[in-house]
Design a protein around this nucleic acid. Structure first.
Ligand code: ZN
Ligand code: ZN
Length: 359
DNA sequence: CCAATCGGACACTAAAGTGT
DNA sequence: CACTTTAGTGTCCGATTGGA
């Protein structure tokens, strides 16, 4: 019972906390990718933003202008796994003033909810009442309602056998979902495109910006093969290059806790991110989409649990007590694109995290 | 206000289908 | 035969209803 009782609605599995050390690792100007010391932190989490190469990148410092500051990329609560965020870490105790990509905390769309856990077998009383049970017998709820003696496991039906199915459609399972033709044969007109792990395209050249971790990064825009990537198709994906806009073009963000001056608009196109996956549908969501042909829900609910405990024998019993998994979203993320939201400071943006200073 | 009810989303997992 | 996909079945969330 000590296993799952601890879920706080507002908390999420904490990212490994990095030493707040940006100073020791300033990537050299012109470097394409300056990773932190190997082994220091989990690679997907802590990486330096690349510094623009003035020879190739339009975002690099204008003539004579000083190079932009290196930004350490630190994951923030609410960020999607694998995403990196090009912005200096907030001071201790503070959070980023702007919504993370791709789903800002303001929108109720995506809350990092832990999966609901079920007991292997609910007792008959709980099952009948459609309430949460536990592994103990009598279960907590039955004890509460004085149903200890009738708290027994139900009996699972045996699953039907011999039911024929059509041919399976294979799912594309690759690290770079990009090029591959995903579920090729979609007879139902079902989604035929597998979304990238992060749904939306990586916005970049924004302040701040987010983008997928290297394996999903778009190719270099300057025609060069940055990083160790691109060369061979066989080796595993390698960090690609992304460049923060130069502050001279796009003023940096205000200090933490301060709202943005104005809504950030789209910047002049310097880099075109790859097209979004046209399929916002969660692979898992398919379940409830189609009409359930046979929902074995016919059962007549017997009186049990609260009902059986008639007469209020067990007072003060409320099954809403205790742990609430705090729903927010199905475990399958909805990869929506172009969804708008409100910025804390009164601005607005999209779930792509595009935010750019007006200049 | 609170407990009981219950529709339906969600989780689990076994069976069917596929690949090697 | 290992692995993947599909879907049958159970769990239980959360909205609704009804009684005190
Ligand atoms: Zn129970
Ligand atoms: Zn019980």
């Amino acid at each position: 019972m000590a296993s799952e009782a601890s879920k706080s609605p507002t908390e999420q599995p904490a990212h490994p906390q990095p030493p707040q050390a940006i100073a020791p690792y300033p990537p050299p100007y012109g470097a394409h990718y300056a990773p932190l010391p190997p082994g220091a932190y989990p690679p997907p989490f802590y990486t330096f933003a690349p510094i623009p190469d003035p020879n190739h990148d339009p975002n690099a410092a204008p003539n004579g202008a000083p190079p932009p500051q290196p930004y350490i990329m630190i994951p923030q609560p609410g960020m999607m796994p694998g995403m990196v965020y090009a912005y200096a870490p907030p001071p201790p105790g503070q959070v980023l003033p702007y919504p993370p990509y791709p789903a800002p905390p303001q929108v109720p769309t995506v809350a990092p909810r832990p999966k609901r856990k079920q007991v292997k077998m609910a007792c008959t009383n709980c099952a009948a009442a459609c309430k949460r049970c536990d592994d103990s017998r009598p279960c907590e709820r039955c004890q509460k309602y004085g149903l200890g003696e009738s708290c027994v496991d139900g009996q699972r039906k045996e699953r039907k056998k011999g039911i024929k199915r059509g041919p399976y459609k294979r799912k594309a399972k690759s690290a770079n979902g990009e090029g591959m033709g995903p579920s090729t044969s979609g007879p139902e007109g079902e989604a035929s495109v597998v979304p990238t792990p992060y749904g939306a395209p990586p916005p970049e050249a924004y302040y701040p910006y987010y983008y997928p971790h290297p394996p999903y990064a778009p190719p270099p825009h300057d025609g060069q093969a940055h990083g160790e990537a691109a060369a061979n198709g066989s080796a595993h994906p390698v960090p690609q290059t992304y460049f923060p806009l130069h502050p001279a073009v796009y003023p940096p963000y205000p200090p933490y806790g301060h709202p943005p001056p104005v809504p950030y608009a789209a910047p002049p196109a310097v880099i075109s991110p790859p097209p979004p996956d046209a399929n916002p549908k969660s692979p898992q969501a398919a379940e409830s989409v189609s009409e359930a042909p046979s929902k074995s829900k016919k059962k007549t609910r017997a009186k049990a649990g609260e009902g059986a405990a008639k007469g209020k024998a067990a007072a003060g019993a409320s099954d809403t007590n205790g742990v609430e998994p705090h729903d927010g979203a199905p475990n399958g993320y909805q990869a929506t694109t172009g969804q708008s939201f409100e910025l804390p400071g009164g601005g607005s943006g999209t779930d792509t995290g595009h935010m750019v200073s007006p200049v």
